[in-house]
Design a protein around this nucleic acid. Structure first.
Lengths: 234, 234
DNA sequence: ACCTGAACACCGTTCAAGT
DNA sequence: ACCTGAACACCGTTCAAGT
């Protein structure tokens, strides 16, 4: 047990010089510490100790803890924007598949970003949203070239985004709860269809194979709908 | 400002009689209080004051706050299980559409359940999962009768569940952040496709119309995939 | 067996003060 | 202008005690 007084009076802690602290440093320290101990465990005293400064010094750069979290959220959103750019080659189907596979993988590898962007976190803000536009526009262009209207193309992106968000949130919850993803769900024999279907699937997460298959199924459905519309109104 | 001492020493507060407190009462009080002030603001002292008992009395019935939250989560999961039952009549498409429309509406009307089941919350536990099985089995049966394999049918349900979860989480986040859902997203003119598509859509939530259209699009894609497979392997 | 307050180690934030 | 500790109202939890 380390009390707050002990933290502040740690040997080797001297008063920080004027100008020796910056908002960027605090933010970087908060990010590193949150990645280490988890967003829930991040506290102002812990952060101050991590940075070797007084607790209240943080308040000169961030109005309160919410403002600090908001800044972390914007940072997380920004770090994901390069992932939105669709591949230069291939069909619109492949492009969507790759983009959303990449996004899920990145999210799964970054619990902090997950928590900030999807779980408890604040919004990233309009400015962070702007980072996503170039990639989204390029993705839309692909689909419009294939025959979708802009509204249909955006609907496709929205569906895949929301599906992916659902995946990411479910997986994050399971990880947080410490549930092993590959343990099969036991189903009583009263439910023959469920039993049959769950033999090679489970409810505690989405395996890479299942995610890939589901993405492909959704995208194939979009392609078939486009074909059907083209056939109806040639 | 009401201090903890003042809470405990409120006039009219007498020592509760033996057997006058029950786990059910505490749970009901916690649920009501959390619905009123929000899950984040729920604290043991606040709950005790709400129930008119001493703070530490809660600990006789629940090992700690996590256990209390877990019980709330199971309760929330259980209250949703009647919503899973598919309608008795109509196509499998209509049945899926109605079920997931109903679920989203119920979730949007219940912030507490949202927070417990999807956001920060713990898992509901395997026993709560069992409540979903009868409805899921009935839904699977519909689709299998239409020609899907059990695995395909479960994939369909999974896709819609994850899509819906994504919707619900996004909407909860916007509500929490106090963002008005119908304010259109401003897009600079550099992105003509996005601008065109966002004229009748927005990024701050999913309108009822958009949700309905997206559900229908996903389900129609499933139907077309089934047709295509039947045509290929008659 | 059941209910309790005192006590403890935390937390976020304000404020008056140092440099 | 920037950095600080003391102080305050919280929080979750333990513990020894009441009934």
């Amino acid at each position: 047990m380390v009390t707050r007084q002990q933290l502040a009076q740690r040997p080797g802690r001297t008063r920080a010089e004027r100008g020796s602290i910056s908002a960027e440093q605090i933010l970087a320290g908060a990010k590193a510490l949150a990645q280490e101990i988890g967003l829930d465990a991040l506290s102002m005293p812990r952060l101050a100790a991590h940075l070797g400064i007084g607790v209240t010094s943080i308040y000169w750069y961030f109005r309160n803890k919410d403002a600090l979290i908001a800044a972390l959220t914007v940072d997380a959103a920004r770090s994901f924007h390069p992932l939105i750019v669709p591949a230069a080659e291939g069909t619109w189907q492949d492009s969507l598949f790759e983009t959303f596979t990449r996004l899920r993988e990145a999210m799964r590898a970054d619990d902090l970003a997950c928590d900030l962007l999807f779980m408890r976190g604040a919004r990233a803000g309009e400015d962070a949203l702007a980072y996503f536009w170039p990639g989204a526009e390029a993705g839309l262009a692909r689909m419009v070239a294939a025959g979708f209207t802009p509204a249909e193309a955006l609907q496709n992106i929205t569906i895949l985004s929301l599906y992916n968000r659902g995946c990411v949130v479910l997986e994050r919850q399971m990880r947080r709860a410490g549930v092993a993803p590959d343990v099969p769900t036991p189903v009583p024999a009263d439910y023959p269809l469920l039993s049959a279907a769950l033999e090679h699937q489970n409810t505690r997460g989405v395996s890479d194979e299942a995610h890939a298959a589901q993405l492909r199924a959704i995208i194939e459905g979009m392609a078939l709908r486009l074909d059907a519309r083209k056939a109806a109104h040639p």
